[in-house]
Design a binder for these strands. Structure first.
Lengths: 153, 153
DNA sequence: ACTGAAATTGTGCGAAC
DNA sequence: GTTCGCACAATTTCAGT
């Protein structure tokens, strides 16, 4: 019920590379008819293997060319402060990703913005306003070498 | 020709949250008919605003529960070595993302794998085999706080 | 679980304003 | 740049095996 056979895996592999492949194309590729493939896709969606279908946009064209990684360490490490930080980060539109990390750094944030000016404002007026932040260290992406949403499995 | 009006932006915002919204739904939301919306989507695809449509999978369910960030610094910084590294990273299936960074660290890699054992093997047999790597520093994701593919614009 | 087919809905495109 | 309408294709459902 929660395991995948090779047919399921093929379906998932195809969909994560191109969500627009038709059920028919997948079925042909598998040597099946449409119906079983259709029902498997429905199942993979409802069980949660497929979380969502999205269009991936070009971030430079929509005017968010700059990516930075921001390492944040808290001053005090109690539950209340950490939870507060996690909540506030959700609201920050510039934050594309946020991870609670092991090691010296508590959180790693991936930020996308229009300009360095905007990043300055983001740090000054938004990020640093959050309580209990100790160290804050930003590094800038010079070039994106690889970025894939599809997993290899 | 390469600028976006508010209609285009609305279309892109809807598609990056749900690639399965129909042209009709977008048209209704905008108070337009299907055709103009259809043609705008085609244009946004061909001009490159929309790079691809993908299904987003649950990484734990497909057995890649562990995410690590790996900071890599090169020993010597000449063009040939850097290009070699960038090429080899493309081939590594475990590497989800790779960025050339400003600052002390040259590259930041985001890795997804099944187990710590597998990470050990990855570093030992794949990553460290690449020539000219100096420092290599791994940090583990304890919890994913936020992760969105959609940009706020 | 898979087949085949029917009903429904969406896509893709031409003509016209 | 938008509307309308039509032919085609894809989705969704269902009886049958």
């Amino acid at each position: 019920m929660e395991t995948l056979d090779e047919i399921d895996k093929t379906i998932l592999r195809m969909l994560q590379h191109d969500a627009k492949v038709t059920t028919k194309e997948i079925a042909n590729h598998l040597g099946l008819t449409i119906s079983p493939v259709y029902e498997r896709i429905r199942r993979l969606e409802s069980v949660g293997f497929i979380k969502q279908y999205v269009a991936v946009l070009d971030k430079s064209l929509i005017d968010k060319p700059i990516t930075t990684f921001c390492q944040v360490s808290m001053r005090y490490h109690n539950e209340a402060f950490i939870e507060k930080f996690e909540q506030e980060v959700q609201e920050l539109e510039e934050v594309q990703e946020c991870y609670h990390m092991g090691g010296q750094v508590d959180f790693l944030l991936k930020i996308n913005i229009r300009s360095l000016d905007e990043y300055h404002d983001f740090v000054k007026y938004k990020l640093s306003k959050i309580d209990n932040i100790g160290v804050l260290n930003s590094t800038f992406v010079l070039k994106e070498i690889k970025h894939t949403i599809a997993y290899h499995f």
